[in-house]
């Protein structure tokens, strides 16, 4: 760290609840309910000090409305900007959806424990996303993409309700034709244009080969999904401590103080949101 970064770090640490102004530099409509926002922290030193891992999240702050935890969707290798994929679900996310390019919002973070990227290197990776769960996994996917030669086989299974709800479709449509990523999309309710798979994401496990001794799993999706996907991974003999899950819980502070995100004996915000399955099995009520 440079001296300037250190001094920015001190400013940030002086008050962990203080959000830092960030400008919205681009907005992309993904579906009816989700938009992708690109943001840039305005203070150069704060921006430099903001170093994150895939799987971590920020607290998005809109003064007068409140705060919401949001996963970072872009890869750490993308410097200076971060992307947030946000579904309109209430006050803060709704206010964010009404923002225009150039508007300023607040960010604090990055928070939490992300995916073990370094540990995953040299192995096959099986990523399973359901719905909005693709948001944090997108960061991991892009990060792997940037370091593709460091990984073995990379398989992505992604399920959405309907074709209209498939996120990042423009990118995934292109990726369908790549041979360095095995990407399978599925929807519960296909329409006449849909040519991909149909049904729940768990059904896709019949179509893939997994080398259990050499594979890391990463799962993110709606709460009901975890149990079934983990079952499929276990059927493929994957190790409990190589299956990683990312949890969503109610959060207020993001820094282990407010108590809202408690899961079992841990706090999702500081001990997670990414846990391996062994840890998750030891968290009462987690899955």
């Amino acid at each position: 760290m440079t001296a300037i970064q250190e001094s920015a770090q001190r400013d940030i640490e002086a008050n962990p609840y203080r959000p830092w102004p960030a400008r919205i530099t681009s907005i992309t409509d993904l579906t009816d309910k989700e938009k992708l926002f690109e943001l840039r922290l305005i203070d150069e030193d704060v921006r430099e000090a903001f170093q994150f891992e895939s799987g971590q999240f920020v607290e998005l702050s809109i003064f007068g409305v409140g705060e919401a935890p949001v996963s970072i969707s872009s890869a750490p290798s993308k410097q200076g900007f971060i992307e947030l994929c946000i579904r309109e679900a209430g006050d803060v996310t709704g206010a964010m959806h009404r923002k225009k390019c150039g508007d300023v919002v607040g960010l604090r973070g990055p928070y939490g424990r992300g995916f073990p990227f370094t540990e995953m290197k040299g192995h096959d990776v099986l990523l399973v996303a359901g719905g909005l769960g693709i948001a944090p996994l997108k960061s991991l996917i892009n990060h792997i993409h940037d370091d593709r030669h460091e990984f073995g086989k990379v398989t992505i299974l992604y399920g959405a309700k309907s074709p209209a709800e498939v996120l990042f479709r423009y990118q995934f449509d292109m990726w369908q034709h790549r041979d360095d990523f095995d990407l399978i999309l599925t929807v519960d309710q296909p329409d006449e244009t849909w040519t991909g798979e149909t049904g729940l994401v768990t059904r896709l496990f019949d179509k893939i080969d997994v080398d259990p001794a050499n594979t890391y799993g990463a799962i993110c999706g709606p709460p009901v999904m975890y149990k079934y996907v983990i079952e499929e991974m276990r059927k493929k003999d994957m190790d409990v401590d190589r299956i990683y899950v990312s949890f969503e819980r109610r959060m207020k502070c993001g820094v282990g103080k407010c108590g809202h995100c408690g899961v079992g004996h841990q706090y999702t915000c500081v001990d997670g949101p990414v846990f391996n399955y062994w840890e998750a099995m030891n968290l009462q009520g987690a899955i």
Binding site: Y17, F63, K252, G259, H260
Partner: peptide, 26 residues
Amino acid sequence: CYCFDVEDRLEPDQKSGVRVRTWDSC
């Protein structure tokens, strides 16, 4: 017990406000 909630309260002119934390309970 230390759990808390956080909320924003706007001044009548809606231009500024305060972020307040209050005791909460699980």
